[in-house]
Simulated scan of single mutants.
Amino acid sequence: MIVEEKIKEAEVETSIVENTKLVLVGEGVFPIIKDANGACIKDIPNTGFGISGTVQGEGKLAGTPSLFIRLASCNLRCIWQMEDGSFCRCDTSYASFHPEDKKSWSIQEIVDVVRHNIGNMQHVVITGGEPLLQKKGVTALCKTLKEELNVHITIESNGTLFDEELTKWVDLFSISPKLSNSVPSADKMKFYNEAENGSSRYHHEIRRNLTALQNYVTVANSTTTELQLKFVVGKVSDEAEIINDYLKLLSGYNQQDIMLMPLGATHEQLANSTPIVLKMCIANGWKYSPRIHIDIFGSKQGV
């Protein structure tokens, strides 16, 4: 009976992997040189290199060779304001505002693409958009990646959603809680010719899910899963909000897990926000996160 039950469980898991779909955007899995069958792809990656992979550009693992998996759609769609009053939209707006270049992938197809492109790398980053909008499929993907390839998995999320089952298969949760400066207000939307639709994403109180964030902290404290809380900062006033609206209301987090990253999708924007962030990090003992991709590639997609 035990053997039969295990066979049935395996059959169910196989069915989930075969039938579950994830909606990916842009290149989907990138940068790659081979498809799911191991055949060479005609075009070279946007990195300009004839090899698979890039480096993680942000957070604790900045500089680490990695493959990326980018999911479509986001529940926040951020637009920030710089200290000089100018606006800065999410640097992956093609995955959040208008994810039109998207495709449904099976779990096995994604895993096979990773298998044929991972090479000597050990890290896979699942990002978006917001990955947890597709949490059932993402959980199945992470489980399969772990069981078949045993790679290190990072999930990049805005921290508004939490799923306990997913935490079993993730090595690092890179959570980027959004400050009120990121709310896509009417004037910001008008600037980018975007139409408001009455969504709750325009209300900061709903965008700030302290229960979900506390759950991530608890998981990091009770398991081997790592955590970083990475705030995007563009204004001097962001400092007080990080402290009063987030850190004072969360318990048990590690000071070394608090990271600040300068706002900007261009070199010019980063030049303006970086001094603000550096000073803030030093004054509070927080870590500074670079934005390596923008430093090297600018706003190019798929790198």
Rank of each mutant, 00 (worst) to 15 (best):
N193D: 14
C142I: 06
F87P: 05
W80G: 00
H152Y: 15
D163P: 10
V125S: 05
P184Q: 03
R201S: 07
P99M: 06
R115Y: 10
G85P: 06
E156T: 03
A195C: 09
S96Q: 06
T127W: 03
T127I: 01
V183T: 14
E83G: 03
K102G: 12
L145C: 05
H203L: 14
F173S: 01
I110V: 15
L76M: 15
L179Y: 12
A95V: 06
N150H: 09
L213S: 08
M121S: 04
E196D: 14
E194R: 12
R208P: 09
W80L: 05
K168R: 13
A195T: 15
R201K: 14
R115A: 07
W105F: 15
L132R: 05
L179D: 11
N197W: 11
F162C: 01
Y202S: 15
N150G: 06
I175N: 00
T167E: 12
P131D: 05
Q214P: 09
W80P: 11
G119Q: 15
R115Q: 07
K103Q: 08
S106V: 06
A186M: 11
W105L: 10
L213N: 04
H152V: 13
A140E: 11
M82D: 06
M121R: 15
K102V: 13
F162L: 00
K136E: 15
V183Y: 08
K146P: 02
L213F: 02
N120P: 05
T144P: 05
I107K: 06
D112T: 04
G119N: 14
L213I: 11
K135N: 02
W105G: 09
F162T: 03
S185V: 02
K188N: 08
G129K: 00
T127F: 02
G129F: 03
I175T: 06
D171Y: 06
D112Q: 13
S93P: 01
P184K: 05
F97W: 15
C90F: 05
E194I: 15
V113G: 04
P177F: 04
H152Q: 12
L149K: 07
F173W: 10
N215A: 13
N193R: 07
V138M: 00
N193Y: 11
A95M: 04
Q81Y: 05
R115W: 08
K103T: 12
G137I: 02
E196M: 14
W169S: 05
S104R: 13
G198A: 00
C88H: 11
S182N: 00
F191S: 09
E148M: 07
K102P: 03
H152N: 11
D112I: 04
T160Y: 00
K143N: 09
V151M: 04
E164V: 01
H98I: 08
E109T: 10
L210N: 07
C142S: 13
L213W: 07
